[in-house]
Design a protein around this nucleic acid. Sequence first.
RNA 1: GGGGGAAUGUCCCGAGCGGCAAAGGGGGCGGACUGUAAAUCCGCUGGCUAUGCCUUCGUAGGUUCGAGUCCUACUUCCCCCA
Length: 417
Amino acid sequence: MSAYKSDFLNVLATRGFIHQISDAAGLDALAAKSEAVAYVGYDCTAASLHVGHLLSIMMLHWLQATGNKPIALMGGGTTRVGDPSGRDETRKLLTYEQIDANKASIRTTFDKFITFGAGKSDAVMIDNAEWLTKLNYIEMLREVGRHFSINRMLTMDSVKLRLEREQELSFIEFNYMILQSYDYVELARRFGCNLQMGGSDQWGNIVNGIDLGRRMGTHQLYALTCPLLTTASGAKMGKTAAGAVWLNADMLSPYDYWQFWRNTEDGDVARFLKLFTTLPLDEIEKLAALKGAEINEAKKVLANEATALMHGRAAADQAEGTARKTFEEGALADTLPTIDIPANALDQGYGVLTAAVTAGLVASTGEARRQIKSGGLRVNDAAVSDEKLALTRANLTPEGVIKISLGKKKHVLLKPV
RNA sequence: GGGGGAAUGUCCCGAGCGGCAAAGGGGGCGGACUGUAAAUCCGCUGGCUAUGCCUUCGUAGGUUCGAGUCCUACUUCCCCCA
């Protein structure tokens, strides 16, 4: 089983993180001496990272757990340019203000997975705006640009795909890989960084950085990519009905985060336990051996562990409790998402349609109407058949709330105040 | 610079003789079946103070009782020639 000498690569390999490595033996030797210094870059394109990013964050976690040094690179500079990899269309350029705000909102995520500090294997966070924004164009061309072959760049997947599909690729995007390559060299010089990790779509960019390093005289650099995650039925990981599965609690509640993992497809459970929890492998094997409906137990463990990593054990326990009451006991969990409504609204009669919209279950009263027609909207677990139904105090449960649900899984409590 | 095409429901792709809230997919949501799974089947998939009203087919004008559809200009993209 241990194909590698280093704990780091062994852990990654057995847990299914490895897609490609540029020079496995060389990297293995470094990691075996706890001398790997690895970075992953995160662009600041949204106010939160999502589960798609989690894979690389877990790699940083294991890197540190096995005695090596992680660097979380915030792409404050590169986000100003925009990565064309894997995209058909040019990204909208974000304003500097948006980028800074996003960066501030993203940074705290990393504290949950890696420990920052000044020690040898302590993690470092840095923003590439620090050097990229100070670059001088002419100097850049002379020192860095001359090492890039247009001929070769045109063969890179990120570029080639665009050209083949006859999609626009602007000069600014074309430069992204140059900047990312330069980041790698800069981090090598500043922190002795010798490994860049990322999703498999980043392979080209990373290898370019290795190349640039060689030409600019850094020590040997390495690349390690993880597979791009899809679910067993082929869907892209991390997208749900409501949109992306955000990591920030203010964008996706711990309860909803727990539910996301709880709803994992059967075929993904074992794989996800290895990738997204820190449970020992033998324990995961036991869970993976479960059959039929018992797999639900494994899903709960997955949800608990993943949520505990991200939002803390207390939040995970609470989410599990809420789910147990709601789904298994059919009881009313007062910890469900709750929306306040003015108490006097109930005196006058509060329309179900409006209530459903207020609760955020549907986007419009029109959608609420349609859901009622197909029997998808319920008040206190009773299907609503009349769209004109008005909620009053009579609808309050003994707990003093009204539970309004869409489908089997989405529940919100309305609480008069 | 010259010539020829294209832009459709703000999730995507895509049909659309001058009467169109606009075919068909994908995706999504809901229902049934289940195990809060997958697969399958069915329904829905502009907004509203709703037997009606309002807003949608790149942008701005025009012709017409009536324009996604015809005309003009503009914007963006693609192709051919230079």
